[in-house]
């Protein structure tokens, strides 16, 4: 079942009509929505990027990260520290955020790819905990648990709708770039390694180098998401590097459906929808997420993405 899915991405070209339609739709929704709804849409977009970046590891390169919030949060810290502590202009901070994440992705990734399977995952956890401890305890530099705030105006001082447009543009570009990565020669190599490292090695692809490339790309894109999140709220706190954000990302991907490109996107939509809407009426919404995850395993291992493609295929079959 899973293997079928892995090879199932027959079409590599981007369906531009779909991308344009989605873009326009989201843009309209942003402008018609009251602030709280616009905030929810912005959250969905940022987390869709973060979870998609994590999905590059989980679904395509055969790695699990138990500490991906590090690369998300360090994006926001890169932005905050360069502006608040180094006095850099805002644009420089925005550039610095994802680069800081990519740098840590390179360092930690280089260590983690030395190991495989659960051992590598445990090393990502150790790296994450070390980073969290440093961020939490190095008061003079990171502000400790008081975080850093006020270095950029929340949403750059824009209205929710227009800040949402900025996020929409950036996230669209990043996800299209990720699509290209997955389907370009590099992506094919990543997938080959993820599926069968031995065979890929026989073909001359070094597992470690390829996985490292995937790790850095994933860290960079998580950093873009984190930087956007830092601007969205105008602050950064150790929580953004912490275990809860890691679990959020993992749950989104697993909910969305492993081995499908859309996993992060679907997962972010469902997760944040429950978080933003259901949480107001039902305090125990995470229990609902847990039950959905169990159903995913029992009914549809391909997650929501699997359900969507099944339904879409049936509809198309009927229409055709």
């Amino acid at each position: 079942m899973a293997a079928e899915h892995r090879r199932g991405n027959a079409s590599w070209s981007i369906d531009w009509r779909l991308v344009a339609a989605t873009f326009v739709l989201v843009a309209i929704a942003l402008h018609l929505s009251p602030p709280l709804v616009a905030f929810a849409i912005i959250e969905v977009m940022i987390f869709a990027l973060y979870a998609s970046a994590l999905n590059l590891l989980l679904s395509y390169s055969g790695m699990v990260s138990f500490g991906h919030a590090v690369y998300f949060g360090l994006g926001a810290y890169g932005l905050a520290i360069t502006i608040a502590k180094f006095g850099w202009p805002m644009w420089a901070g925005v550039v610095a955020g994802p680069l800081v994440s990519a740098f840590f992705g390179l360092v930690y990734g280089a260590l983690c790819v030395q190991l495989t399977a659960i051992y590598a995952a445990m090393l990502t956890l150790a790296c994450a905990e070390i980073t969290f401890a440093i961020v939490f305890q190095w008061f003079d530099f990171t502000g400790g648990d008081s975080g850093i705030s006020g270095h950029v105006p929340a949403m750059m001082g824009l209205s929710p709708a227009w800040f949402g447009m900025v996020v929409l543009v950036v996230v669209t570009i990043c996800i299209l770039a990720l699509w290209r990565v997955v389907h370009a020669p590099l992506g094919l190599t990543i997938r080959a390694v993820g599926e069968n490292p031995v065979r890929a090695a026989a073909m001359g692809h070094g597992r470690k180098r390829v996985q490292l490339a995937a790790f850095v790309i994933s860290a960079f894109l998580s950093g873009v998401a984190g930087t956007l999140y830092g601007i969205f709220h105008g602050n950064v706190f150790p929580e953004y590097v912490g275990v809860l954000f890691t679990i959020d990302g993992l749950v989104m991907v697993l909910l969305g459906g492993l081995y499908s490109f859309g996993a992060g996107i679907y997962g972010a939509i469902v997760y944040k929808l429950l978080d933003n809407v259901m949480a107001h009426y039902f305090e125990y919404w995470q229990l609902v997420i847990g039950v959905i995850l169990v159903l995913v395993v029992l009914v549809s291992p391909a997650g929501i993405a699997g359900l969507v493609s099944t339904v879409a295929a049936r509809l198309r079959g009927r229409a055709g």
């Binding site: 492993l258 997420i289 847990g290």
Partner: peptide
């Protein structure tokens, strides 16, 4: 099944037990 499916299940249990 995949090792990741075990992750999904045990993670689900974490969320359910906590709530």
């Amino acid at each position: 099944a995949e090792e990741l499916m075990q992750l999904v299940l045990t993670l689900a249990a974490v969320l359910i037990v906590r709530d």
